[in-house]
Design a protein around this nucleic acid. Structure first.
Lengths: 177, 177
DNA sequence: TTTAATTATTAGGAAACTTAACTATCAGTT
DNA sequence: AACTGATAGTTAAGTTTCCTAATAATTAAA
C-alpha cells in the first residue's frame, strides 16, 4: 500500500471534516494520520529502491552504522540502541545480512557474552552503491527544500526529546533553522 | 521499541554527523530517519492507549470510519481505500473487530460480490470511549501548538500529493496556515 | 562469593504488508 | 444470451518488525 492511491479527494481531509462535526477540529488527529501515511509512502519508496540490493531500509541503516565504526564492527546491543530497534529485531537483521555475506558475527573480545557484527568488503561495496541510489532519490523527500527538511527534522527532535529518547539538545545544535 | 531510549545523545544527530563526513550533509537523510522514529514513537503511544479497549490504531480508524457513514456500514473495499490499507489487511482488521463483536459482516445488497462491515452498538460505545482517550492524549502530539500541527499536516499533504494519493487541493483548503 | 544485571538467542504470537491464486459476481461487447 | 474482462473479497504463504518470556553465558556489584 505504498502505491499511489489516485483518489479524487484527500481521504484524510475528508475523515477530518467528518471528525470535526462530532468531536471538534483536531489538528493532532489530522497530523498524526497524515504522518502515518507519509511514513508508509516513504518506507515503500526506500524499500523499493533498496530491493535490487537485497536490502530493506532497516538493514541498510545497520550497514551504514557499521561503516561509521572505525573497526567496521559493533556489538549487537549497540546496534539496536543506535538504530532504536528491539534486540530481537537486531538478531533478525544481522541474521539476514550475514546470510547475504554483507556482515559476519564474531565473538566480542571485550565481553564474553557479546557478539560483534562486522561488515565485510562486500557489505561496504553494497553500502556505497545503495547510498548513491538513495541520495539520487533524495530519500523520497525531493519535494522539500533544504530548509524545510531541517525544519521537519527539528520538529521531530522536539517529539523525540519529549518522549525521552535523549536530553534536550543545547541551543547551538538548533543553529540550522 | 516505542519506549523511551534515554540515551545521553541523539543517535540520529550522531549518525548524520558521521554521514556528513563521508557523503556530505543530507537533511533528507536526517528528516527521513527522524520521521521514522517519530512514527514508531507515536504508533507505540496510540496502540498503548488503545490496548485497554482491545484496539490498535488501525482498528480504531476502521471503527471511526464506520461511525461516519450514515448507515454505519461500508463495503470492505471502500474501507481499505479510505484508510489506505491493503485489501488483505482490511479482511484481517474486520475479522478481529467482528470477533470482538464491534462490527458484523453483511452481504452487500447493492453488489452480490461485496460485503459490508457494519458497526454494532458495542462498537459505537468503544469508539466513543477510545476517542475520548486519544483526545486526552492529544494523539501523542501534545508538544506542538495548533499552528504547528496544521503546518505539519500541510507538509505531509505535499508529499502525499507528490506520490499520487490525490490531486493537489484547491488553494482555499490551505487556509488554516 | 553469592546475587543481580547484561548480552544475545530462541520461541511463540500479534500486526500489517506482499504476491498469488481462487470464487463469485458484475458489466460491457459482440 | 453468452463470452470476456474487471471487481470484491478471501485464503494462503511468506516477510518484517514488534512484543513477552525463557534461557545460557558472562560480567559486575554487594
Amino acid at each position: 500500500m505504498g502505491n499511489p492511491l489516485n483518489l479524487p479527494f484527500d481521504p484524510i481531509e475528508r475523515a477530518h471534516d467528518n471528525w470535526s462535526q462530532r468531536w471538534g477540529a483536531s489538528p493532532a488527529m489530522a497530523a498524526v494520520t497524515s504522518l502515518m501515511r507519509a511514513q508508509q509512502i516513504l518506507i515503500g519508496e526506500l524499500d523499493g529502491a533498496l530491493k535490487p540490493f537485497g536490502l530493506t531500509f532497516a538493514r541498510y541503516e545497520a550497514l551504514v552504522l557499521l561503516t561509521f565504526s572505525s573497526s567496521g564492527s559493533l556489538p549487537l546491543g549497540k546496534i539496536g540502541e543506535r538504530l532504536m530497534v528491539h534486540p530481537t529485531s537486531v538478531t533478525n537483521t544481522i541474521d539476514r545480512l550475514e546470510g547475504q555475506g554483507l556482515v559476519l558475527r564474531r565473538p566480542n573480545p571485550d565481553d564474553g557474552r557479546g557478539v560483534l557484527a562486522e561488515i565485510t568488503e562486500a557489505g561496504r561495496g553494497v553500502t556505497e552503491e545503495a547510498t548513491r541510489t538513495l541520495l539520487d532519490l533524495d530519500f523520497g523527500l525531493g519535494c522539500y527544500s533544504q530548509e524545510e527538511l531541517w525544519r521537519m527534522h527539528e520538529m521531530f527532535v522536539r517529539l523525540r526529546v519529549d518522549f525521552g529518547d535523549f536530553p534536550a539538545p543545547a541551543v547551538e545544535a538548533v543553529r540550522r533553522s
